[in-house]
Design a protein around this nucleic acid. Sequence first.
DNA 1: ACAATAAGTGAATGGCTTTCACTAAAGAAT
DNA 2: ATTCTTTAGTGAAAGCCATTCACTTATTGT
Lengths: 212, 212
Amino acid sequence: MQTPSKTSQLGRPRTPRLSRKAIGRAALEMFEEEESLSIPRLAERLGVRQSSFYKHVTGRQEIIELARGALVERAPMPELPSGSLDDVIREIFDSLRKAYGLVPALLPLLLTQPVSHPAALERYDRFVEAFEIAGAPRHLIIPALEALDSAAIGASLDAMTMESAWSINEEEEGTYPHLFAAKKAVAEHPVDRFAFLADVLSAGLRAAIDDD
Amino acid sequence: MQTPSKTSQLGRPRTPRLSRKAIGRAALEMFEEEESLSIPRLAERLGVRQSSFYKHVTGRQEIIELARGALVERAPMPELPSGSLDDVIREIFDSLRKAYGLVPALLPLLLTQPVSHPAALERYDRFVEAFEIAGAPRHLIIPALEALDSAAIGASLDAMTMESAWSINEEEEGTYPHLFAAKKAVAEHPVDRFAFLADVLSAGLRAAIDDD
DNA sequence: ACAATAAGTGAATGGCTTTCACTAAAGAAT
DNA sequence: ATTCTTTAGTGAAAGCCATTCACTTATTGT
């Protein structure tokens, strides 16, 4: 009479070891901690073999989409201001950047595939609703949302690429004088990029929408 | 006396088969045609073995940076308007989107590493110069340029992801009613995303800059 | 009780990037 | 001119990766 310490793990387990939700969450954690996704390493994290994933998911792309879902589910839906257009724009942008800021490594991968996870679609649906309530013309809502989304992603990535998006040394000061001076100026007089972008988007979107 | 049809290709060739410029150009072409970069396939294109690259380049990342250089060198520097801020903003945005639109597959990879190719740095240096001439405050030039860059990348990627960034079927109309309606509205009343973004950025950046 | 299905495994395939000892030519020094 | 050093390309291999598939064991439906 031995404790069934059989670790052979063959055949169907009595209790499920995986689920789409667990996969999404673990993938998201992996992106945060390792800045990349590897299926063998994800399997290790979950105490499972790599081939097991393919019972729940068609491939890598789908795991990435599940990570998007996990990201959305982690950040609670913000109070959606039935407020002014300005409030709506700032609230959405803020909500996006907060989520994206946590996992910069995931962003380039999210950019290359359409949003299909239900939790994410639901979130965007609410964003659209807020735009409607604020009185935005319906045909401009999608373009506006796309603009907010890429701006939030771009800013989060810029924030990750430490130092600067342009890598130049001291000795190249003479080669790129204007760029160098501009970098120096912003170093001496730092600008909060998120606040700046929020201002730009708010003013810009309101102008574009009112012109309609 | 035989024609030296020896294809053994061993040892140093009499005339160089590779150069950083040729590698960058070929990589860019490969991104355009195959939407990805693989070193073995790039070697095939250039009639060379994969290990040869490592005599000219430290690795994959550097090849991507050379592709960035090739992209910049392909598009001629636009006439830089010593004009109004509005002109400068639109000219830069247009120049960026034209370049990026040709190689959407490359963009996510460019996003994740700083600009270091001299041709690219030189181009950005001129952009900064144009901002200076237009009278933008120096510490806001870099943030403004970052905003233009991410917007151009985001819009080019959105344009690639055919149909829509949000993938929903007819039968999900009820699940995401606002999103669905907004998609329908923009389908019926199409919006040129680049023109829209140009308007948003122009108005937004001018407002943010004038507020200073 | 039994068939069908579902979840997990193990092994293999074919792709990828990078490294390194090797070869042959070019360029520098004597 | 000869020799030495450096340079550009090769070939083979190591160590990753994602994906597939025949197999095993449990659960579910009849």
